[in-house]
């Protein structure tokens, strides 16, 4: 334990409104939900923010509901909640799969979808699934709410559109992917409790041999969770042929910027990303 907990404050106002008021009054406050990221930083002595406010067990943020073909997940939904929900299992299997890949069971019991998104790691497990399901994200602050496509949420490495005093309220997913081909594969350091070296998620709607819709997103391919628009553009409206697969791989290679780090190498990530894309295209 490399921090002095006496140097930190934590409050738990108990309602969303109270949290938002506190955030509005004190812009230095940092929200902590399940703690699976911030507490690691605390342990190794690298937790920058010293004033924290707890979102844990805020009922207003922990819900899963379906209405008019839209599934809404509160930001406080845990990965365990996702894994146990029948609607998500039916409509959004990739999300269930990525939830199961997130940390360990103990981390899934505590970690929240909102926390995972706000933490904004390019290696995070769920964001690629949300991106290929065309998610929108709703933000809330004392000043009100706003909704935007999730694809516009991440601005750069660990940078998001969240303003001071603003929280993620919910993620919305349209229930219209039942007929899509769906794919996700994570390449981690081991089978469990692994951080992604890379991952690729994809959904595609086929019209005979032609790709009518396609969405691709990955982990650790660029500096943030992001769609792979250039690659999608190459494939959209086409039939999968060997030539197209080559073009798609070239497009992918040109739009991703994997890095060398402690877990893997850029060239490995590049090659495996292309292989996974190819595996998906071959399955169409």
């Amino acid at each position: 334990m490399r921090s002095d907990v006496r140097d930190y404050t934590l409050t738990a106002p108990g309602s969303l409104n109270a949290v938002l008021s506190a955030l509005a009054a004190n812009p230095r406050l940092t929200p902590v939900a399940g703690g699976t990221e911030l507490m690691v930083a605390l342990g190794v002595g690298r937790l920058g923010p010293h004033e924290l406010i707890s979102l844990h067990r805020l009922k207003e943020l922990r819900f899963i509901e379906e209405h008019s073909g839209i599934l809404t997940l509160g930001a406080g939904t845990t990965f365990t909640d996702i894994r146990r929900n029948a609607t998500i299992a039916r409509e959004f299997p990739l999300l269930v799969q990525t939830a199961a890949w997130t940390g360990s069971i103990a981390n899934q019991n505590r970690g929240t979808l909102g926390g995972n998104i706000a933490n904004a790691s390019p290696a995070a497990d769920s964001p690629p699934a949300l991106l290929v399901y065309d998610a929108t994200i709703e933000l809330v602050s004392a000043n009100g709410r706003r909704t935007l496509p999730y694809g516009e949420f991440h601005l750069g490495y660990k940078k998001t559109v969240l303003l001071p005093g603003e929280l993620i309220y919910a993620v919305r997913l349209p229930c219209r992917f039942a007929k899509h081909r769906q794919y996700v594969r994570k390449v981690g350091t081991r089978n469990a409790q692994a951080i992604s070296k890379i991952a690729l998620a994809a959904t595609a709607l086929m019209d005979g041999a032609t790709v009518r819709e396609i969405r691709l997103a990955g982990a650790s391919l660029v500096d943030r969770p992001a769609r792979l628009h250039a690659t999608e553009a190459v494939v959209l409206g086409k039939a999968i042929t060997p030539e197209l697969r080559t073009l798609a791989a070239a497009a992918l290679a040109s739009e991703i910027k994997p890095i060398d780090d402690i877990r893997s190498t850029a060239k490995y990530r590049m090659a495996v990303a292309c292989n996974l894309l190819d595996e998906f295209l071959l399955s169409l």
Binding site: A12, V40, R110
Partner: peptide, 21 residues
């Protein structure tokens, strides 16, 4: 996972739980 305990019946890593929670 050596610090695993059950909180409200759910398994958690107690090293990652702030006590106030």
């Amino acid at each position: 996972g050596s610090c695993s305990v059950l909180v409200d019946g759910e398994l958690v890593n107690s090293c990652l739980v702030p006590s106030l929670q």
